[in-house]
Design a protein around this nucleic acid. Structure first.
Lengths: 211, 211, 211, 211
DNA sequence: GATGAATGAGTCTTCATTCAT
DNA sequence: GATGAATGAAGACTCATTCAT
């Protein structure tokens, strides 16, 4: 058991600096994009000056990359959650869909991460590749496994979805895209959308069509 | 008998310049985004100098906006095509899907237009709104009408798709995103994807499930 | 007697081009100063294009210099007028003053010429020197002669004005400055000013003080 | 006991910078005028680079305006001086004249300020108005009061000068103008000029003409 | 750790000038 | 004579980055 000197609010603040900066950077980069964001604005957002940023991060470029890492929540818990699903496959799929909306489509961080990949992808190609390996691919694999297990269990029919699970999740991407572009300007009934998404998927999958 | 001054090579060149510039601007803006693109690079791409660009366009901003207009193909012919569809609604829907992929998902211009809206939307909000009014909304309306007519004709069942046609086209958006992010790095069987998309939609719509 | 082909309005216009340009240049240079005036604006003022200006004038600099020459009315007639003065010297002085106001202080051209010398003098030093030789010096000489003749005739007393005639005309310069700076914003009773000027001068000059 | 951080050479330098820049700006603007002066030249004059100028002043325009303010010495002390005059009004007037020459006509700053108003007045109209309110008007009022007091005391006769005091000071303006245009090229006996100016004024004012 | 004065490369934009038509 | 497309040098202004304090 180690003895730590108590961390006062002052020390606490200092310990948080990098995280604080990363959060501020996220907000500013979201607002203006990589090129148009000034490191001075990032500094101002947390009440420090340019120099402080450079004490913690070598360059604006490195800061951006670390910021991406910082806001990319680990996928492992999502995976664990999905693997722990039980019961009828129709329910498992609904749960799957729900968690995808919660953690990806609806979440602001994920949405802006997606925007960064689209907007700054050519400037930071390895970020895109990393996200493909770490997030997109595992998610698709997990979904594919769910489909295959459902088919093996005789609950799902052999839909093309089994081979191209991306299609099954594309409505979630659409919602992400929609919120990116219109945020609050175009109303969007999120709950109805998610329900419709689930219903449609199951319509095409269940051996007994609900017709 | 009209008197035309013969269009010499110079006059010809002049008439072509704006289009030439707009095309070059599209390529450069695609490559680097609005902020990072240098007017000089746009000029160099067609072998002229900065000054020439400013002879035709007041500012980089106006150039960007006109470029957007230039590459936004009018939606009217798509609409006309869709309205001319005949035969069973299943076939009409397949045709609809096919044209959406041809004209929107697969087309490089449309894809980069979408990227611009995501990447530069906050800088040019009216462009986003304009595209919503001119492209997204009409497309969704056309699809909704097709669904409703199919239901009225007794061919389609009352799926939630009827109310949220966006969901039906979301796979096309996914393909667009995919190509934006990975272009040629991740292979993608486009034909198989489109077929799967159609099949899944019909699975959920036709009164007689193909099961 | 030479036979000239009749000059139609078209030919007339062409013959006037240089003058027309010079007039336009005057207006534009007055408005914005030498550096900030664009030759394109000068051209636009008379409905032609840049190229036309360069057909008649080598450079903007030469155009400016010729414009100065163009608006500098010859001093010879003023001189002749002054030399033709007759009668009592008090009257001659009054006439002198009056002509100075008419031709110099009140005249817009002369005023703007003065402004050019102050504003652009360091860029065009020879213009300043030329105006000194052609206008200022002769005017002062003429005045000095008038004073001396008046003294010789026993009408004027030997005021210091005789040696420094500049002082005698300085109110006219003041009026010029005033109009340059405030034009119509600060009212100024020109007639009263001129009368006061004459009266004060004579007060100090006439052997019999009007006291 | 106050705690001051010792002003090191760096802190000192920082405190001096704005003044240093303003002085350099004055010299450069005097030399080339507003438009033709390059911010970089101002910087070079004090051995820094462009960026430094922009660290202290938002734009070239603001720099110019602040420079004007910086070189415009307050008029209050002149006013105080004038109000403290005592003795015979003839002497007071002579003192008045002398101070006008010292502080206005002869002073390089004032002269160049006048040049700026003539040359850049249309670009910075509020500067002209401000100088009218702050300098010209108060000076004229002070002179008018002096005249009126002199008349009331029975020392001065009711000359038109009383109503148009501008005329009384116009020789000082002439000297300013002369030095602006010819500086050292045309010799000018300043002392003799001032004496003559005083003498002429008094000739026209004193009840007992010196005749 | 933090500051902020200073740098200087980089970018948009302007405009005098040229010249093919 | 006149045009106007094209040039390219020049200048205002920005901002990532450094470093003495």
């Amino acid at each position: 058991m180690s003895i730590k000197k108590p961390i006062g609010p002052r020390a606490q603040r200092k310990a948080d600096r990098p995280g604080e900066i990363l959060d501020a950077a996220f907000e500013e980069f979201v607002q203006s994009g990589y090129v148009a964001t000034r490191v001075e604005d990032i500094a101002a957002r947390i009440g420090v000056t340019k120099g402080t940023i450079y004490f913690y991060f070598e360059t604006k470029e490195k800061l951006f990359e670390e910021m991406i890492r910082h806001v990319s929540v680990p996928f492992s818990d999502v995976k664990a959650y999905l693997q722990a699903l039980e019961g009828p496959y129709a329910e498992r799929l609904k749960d799957f869909i729900r968690i995808v909306y919660q953690r990806i489509a609806t979440d602001r961080n994920s949405r802006e991460l997606l925007r960064f990949m689209i907007a700054e992808g050519s400037r930071f190609p390895h970020i895109v590749d990393h996200h493909y390996d770490e997030f997109i691919l595992p998610l698709m694999e997990a979904l594919r496994e769910l489909f295959e297990a459902g088919v093996a269990a005789g609950e799902f029919c052999g839909s093309p979805l089994t081979k191209i699970p991306e299609i099954a999740l594309s409505p979630a991407l659409l919602m992400s895209f929609w919120m990116m572009l219109f945020s609050d300007r175009k109303i969007f009934d999120v709950e109805a959308f998610i329900d419709a998404h689930s219903e449609i998927l199951l319509n095409g999958l269940l051996r007994t069509a609900p017709l």
